[in-house]
């Protein structure tokens, strides 16, 4: 079926809920309204008490979900926007991430937290953040960010089959941006494994989420021969695929929408520097948002990495 990412996520939730009666969705406006982006549209009518409108309290939503998971349910909380998810950081870090470890696997938290991320859609203040780095710093969490309808469905279904707390980041800009042929049945995409979007010899570009299509477009326009790697899973990181590609191309560039400093790009650069320093022939380049808070949408076109910045960086790197 030819569907966009939003329909793919809705379809994944629907199939998983059919399969597993213990799955419950909860969050602000996820019921009759189908969520502010309509991701859960129609699921309340179909599953009634398994789709729960909650009071407006993000830490409450996550804390209650943790309790549900501890007691044998499989909660899928939705946080309406990633910018409001900080309120639940305490529950995520102190409990969701460490419950398995602190009880030596006596208890686990099978839970998928869904939240829209990233900008480029002229949304209100606090509605466009890319918060993956602080979450990726927390051991025990799985951080996933799809870049296409096909990936969104397969990754979400896999997440719903896992015994771990997963943060599933949904780029708002991609919800309705394009459609793709997606299988009607259930299928899983492996977690912790990156995906080659393109294969080439001159350069490795590591990216994920909103930036994947932009990177692909620049590479095509410039007719360069590059490995384009879509992380799919941000944490735990697929270091192996990255290093494999670097050994071949000798040049690395990381592109993401989140701020540059202390970001996912920094982590990847450090790993390349530690483990493949003799394989590279050029500096590692990060193209990401500047190290400042997400601006009002009036300025966002300068903030979010664009084709111009990515193109320049590619040119620079290929000169080495």
């Amino acid at each position: 079926m030819l569907i966009n990412m939003l329909n793919a996520i809705n379809n994944a939730l629907d199939l998983a809920m059919q399969e597993n009666q213990d799955i419950v969705l909860l969050g602000e406006d996820v019921g009759k309204d189908g969520g502010v982006f309509r991701v859960t549209d129609g699921l309340f009518d179909k599953y009634k008490n398994r789709v729960i409108d909650t009071p407006l309290a993000e830490d409450g939503i996550i804390g209650v979900s943790i309790g549900m998971a501890l007691a044998g349910l499989r909660p899928v909380p939705e946080i309406q926007f990633a910018g409001f998810m900080w309120l639940s950081f305490n529950q995520i870090v102190n409990h969701a991430a460490r419950y398995r470890s602190r009880t030596r696997s006596r208890f686990s938290i099978p839970m998928v937290i869904r939240t829209p991320v990233s900008g480029g859609v002229r949304a209100l203040e606090h509605h466009s953040e890319s918060p993956e780095a602080p979450y990726a710093n927390i051991g025990g969490l799985v951080i996933i960010e799809p870049s296409s309808p096909y990936d969104a469905k397969g990754l979400l279904i896999k997440a719903l089959h896992m015994q771990d707390p997963v943060i599933f980041l949904e780029p708002t800009k991609l919800y309705r941006l394009f459609k793709q042929e997606v299988p009607e049945n259930m299928y899983e995409i492996e977690i912790g494994k990156a995906n080659y979007i393109a294969k080439g010899d001159d350069l490795t570009i590591i990216t994920y989420g909103t930036m994947v299509n932009i990177v692909k477009s620049v590479a095509e326009k410039k007719q360069i021969s590059a490995d384009i790697i879509d992380l799919r899973t941000i944490a735990p990181l697929d270091e192996k695929t990255i290093l494999e590609s670097i050994k071949k191309t000798g040049k690395a560039m990381i592109v993401h929408e989140a701020p540059t400093s202390f970001g996912v790009g920094a982590e990847i650069s450090a790993r390349i520097a530690e483990k493949a320093i003799y394989d590279i022939s050029a500096p590692i380049i990060r193209i990401a948002a500047p190290s400042l808070p997400y601006p009002y949408p009036g300025y966002e076109k300068f903030y979010v990495p664009n084709e111009l910045r990515i193109g320049k960086a590619i040119e620079k790197l290929l000169k080495y």
Binding site: M68, L70, L73
Partner: peptide, 25 residues
């Protein structure tokens, strides 16, 4: 029983979720 919880008050929400599961099941 569930284990000791140190971050103050966070266990109240877990307890509510656990109670929700009892009602659900």
């Amino acid at each position: 029983a569930y284990p000791w919880i140190v971050p103050v008050s966070t266990q109240i929400l877990h307890a509510v979720g656990i109670a929700y599961a009892q009602k659900f099941k």
